[in-house]
Design a protein around this nucleic acid. Sequence first.
DNA 1: GCATGAAACGGGAACCGTTGTCATCTACTG
DNA 2: CAGTAGATGACAACGGTTCCCGTTTCATGC
Lengths: 142, 142
Amino acid sequence: MTATQARRATRQGAAVEEVLRAADGFRTAQEVFAAAVAAGHRIGLTTVYRHLNSLAEDGRADVVHAGDGEAQYRLCGADDGGGHHHHVVCRTCGRSEEVAAPEVERWAERVAGAAGYTEVSHTVEVFGLCPEHATHPRATRS
Amino acid sequence: MTATQARRATRQGAAVEEVLRAADGFRTAQEVFAAAVAAGHRIGLTTVYRHLNSLAEDGRADVVHAGDGEAQYRLCGADDGGGHHHHVVCRTCGRSEEVAAPEVERWAERVAGAAGYTEVSHTVEVFGLCPEHATHPRATRS
DNA sequence: GCATGAAACGGGAACCGTTGTCATCTACTG
DNA sequence: CAGTAGATGACAACGGTTCCCGTTTCATGC
């Protein structure tokens, strides 16, 4: 299961990756589709979903579920050796910063183990407003 | 504004809470609906959703989005004040343990702040298999 | 370069969970 | 006990995602 040589090289697959690479943040499948079409690519929504899922499966893309039932995708380093990571995502523009979270990993393992749970997985997503989209300084910010 | 006495006391509202209380884990809205009907309550799916959302809004229930677009609900201590907490949820039966996560709270604030993000919120869900549903030790690394 | 088999594509329908609509019903108040 | 605001629920609408299946395109051998 090393070589997940799933897909054949196609224009559409390239288009999806291209759109994803051009965006420096998370995008929904529909946004990717719209962007690809806008860029002149001939591609169907179904195909966008197919490629997005393939990328996610192969670990070439990260997925977050924003909580309102809309999955968002983002390209990430092909085989980011050992680095399971998380993101801080801007609620407004989808921009994101990648952050490592060794403490959180350990914490998850520990509390789950303490409760007797096995095969532990976890989802950690941090949402916020990036500097550019920060609202009026409600606290003491200058 | 303390008493968010939003809803009138009705049989249906009681039924939803009853079902939720009987289950010691997370349940989807549809499951709650099915259980209520099975228990002989006369109630509609719409109403189940309404009460579930009310409970969640008032902080009387926790919600997790299992990642496949299905929200799951669980009763929790009425007004547990500042106690923002998380859960370890069994993938198979929905059973869950409540866990406090002060370190994670701090971590989220810190990394988001470091990246210049404000209005930070986060979702942390840990999934696993409870002792009862553990599979044979497969040595699989997540 | 061209034929060929297989994989990928894509339009539209199907699905599924969730929310909106609105006429009817019911829990509370006076 | 009657009046009324609010709750209910059957059904339709909705939005995101997946399935279906005939058509197109890729990759390869000739």
